[in-house]
Nucleic acid binder design. Structure first.
Length: 450
DNA sequence: AGCACA
């Protein structure tokens, strides 16, 4: 019988620690709400730009009395609450908490994360990004990178206010095709083939970016003396031209391996074993790209990488044409990888005993081969401090190994092409190992074809 | 100038 509102005024003033603010300017940002409200108490959450006109907001105080303080203050004040000169009307909200307005990217900070939609990394230069964001204040640092989300940039400002202004102004807008500014050389900011490039801007959790080099991917405008990474300056270094006139890709200490015909899982440990034959492997990362599996393998220097590349290129990890490796030089010079995950390793991290135990446990299940007699001549670069393949809980506890069934790491021992000593015999066809990978890591897989 | 659609 009754309808809502029958027993109460429509807008009762039941106190709530959430205040409802109206008549805000459309562009009102959270900082302005905070400035207005924080004299009265601790703000635990806000929601701004509410409603079709973006002119309402909610502010939640930690304590009810703080909200009452603010509401009663402005109710009796001769000076109304104002934001940008507009009078703001304040009442208690009919709810008692502000619902989740904020994802991780909505927590204001001085560093912005910009996703540039619809472009490839090469389409928008770091100079253009710098130009666009410099309109709001001094840009300290810029770092760009490619992620699954697309081409992204981190832009570091001095303070939250500047970053917020840039975000409010640029989020959802497109980088203009042309710059009308007479002060910059870039007349055209975008290549012709880019039809649109919307900016999606959120806040980064970073406060201070760590820029190691000035390069086409990263800049530190506060430190002009930061070393330039020559291999990373696009266009500065002409690509080397080989004797055949073809452009050679610039060399790098990091190799990019594409794994073809990957019938069997290729783990970080398998790659480490294979690539360690040529020098210390510092880091490994495995990832999927274009439906295939790729890996980055980092050596300390280019020469080691070059030797490994020439020796391994085109060869298979496993007999039968499985897991064929194609190598090129990566553009990376220093990988940023998790120290220990199923897709990456950082072997440079000292005191790595924590993960070494689990590594040996998962990769070298038996201790049959840890004896001195099985000295790993096939493993010429055993790292100092690295324990032998000690016993550990087996991943395959029920499995026993016969003489002919060899753990996976032994495959490399038979992988004669991997021996550095044979690199000079360039014309020698690779003698692949005689074991299928099922022997160790895939008990159900076809047996080796020895 | 009057309550959020995640």
């Amino acid at each position: 019988m009754s309808t809502s509102g029958q027993h109460q005024f429509r807008y009762t003033q039941t106190p709530s620690k959430v205040l409802h603010l109206r008549n805000l300017p459309w562009e009102c940002i959270e900082e302005e709400l905070v400035e207005l409200c924080k004299p009265f108490g601790k703000i635990v959450n806000t929601r701004c730009n509410v409603g079709a006109n973006h002119n309402q907001a909610f502010v939640e105080f930690a304590d009810l009395n703080q909200a009452i303080n603010m509401a009663t203050y402005f109710a009796s004040s001769s000076e109304p609450a104002q934001v940008r000169g507009k009078t703001v009307y304040i009442q208690y909200s009919n709810r008692h908490e502000v619902v989740n307005n904020k994802g991780p990217g909505d927590v204001p900070g001085n560093v912005l994360l910009a996703t540039i939609e619809g472009v490839e990394a090469g389409d928008v230069s770091i100079d253009v990004i710098h130009l666009v964001f410099s309109a709001f204040g001094f840009v300290h640092k810029v770092a760009t990178f490619e992620k699954a989300a697309g081409f992204q940039a981190l832009i570091q400002f001095s303070d939250v206010e500047t970053a917020s202004a840039a975000r409010e102004s640029l989020d959802g807008r497109s980088i203009p095709r042309q710059s009308l500014s007479p002060f910059y050389l870039w007349k055209y900011l975008l290549p012709d083939h880019v039809s649109s490039c919307n900016l999606r801007i959120s806040y980064s959790a970073h406060r201070d970016l760590s820029i190691k080099f000035q390069s086409h991917r990263s800049r530190d405008y506060t430190n002009p003396y930061l070393p330039v990474n020559p291999s990373a300056i696009e266009g500065f270094v002409q690509p080397a031209v080989g004797p055949d006139g073809k452009i050679k890709e610039p060399e790098s200490n990091v190799l990019l391996a594409s794994i073809e015909n990957m019938q069997y899982a290729v783990t970080v440990d398998v790659l480490h074993t294979v690539f360690s034959a040529f020098g210390t492997v510092q880091k490994i990362a495995i990832f999927e790209k274009n439906g295939g599996t790729q890996a980055l393998i980092q050596y300390p220097d280019i020469s080691t990488a070059a030797v490994a590349k020439d020796a391994i290129e085109g060869h298979c990890i496993y007999d039968g044409g499985y897991c064929k490796l194609h190598l090129s030089y990566s553009r990376h010079t220093d990988l940023n990888v998790k120290a220990f995950s199923d897709k990456s390793r950082d072997y440079t991290i000292p005191n790595s005993t924590v993960w070494q135990n689990s590594q040996t446990a998962s990769m070298f299940p038996g201790n049959e081969f840890s004896g001195g007699g099985a000295g790993p001549t096939w493993y010429p670069n055993t790292q100092a401090g690295r324990p032998p393949f000690v016993s550990g809980p087996s991943t395959f506890p029920g499995q026993t190994y016969s003489q002919s069934s060899v753990p996976a790491y032994a495959a490399a021992a038979d992988f004669s092409v991997m021996q550095p000593g044979q690199i000079s015999g360039a014309s020698q066809p690779p003698r692949q190992h005689n074991m299928g990978p099922g022997g160790a890591s895939h008990p159900g897989q076809p047996p080796y074809n020895g």
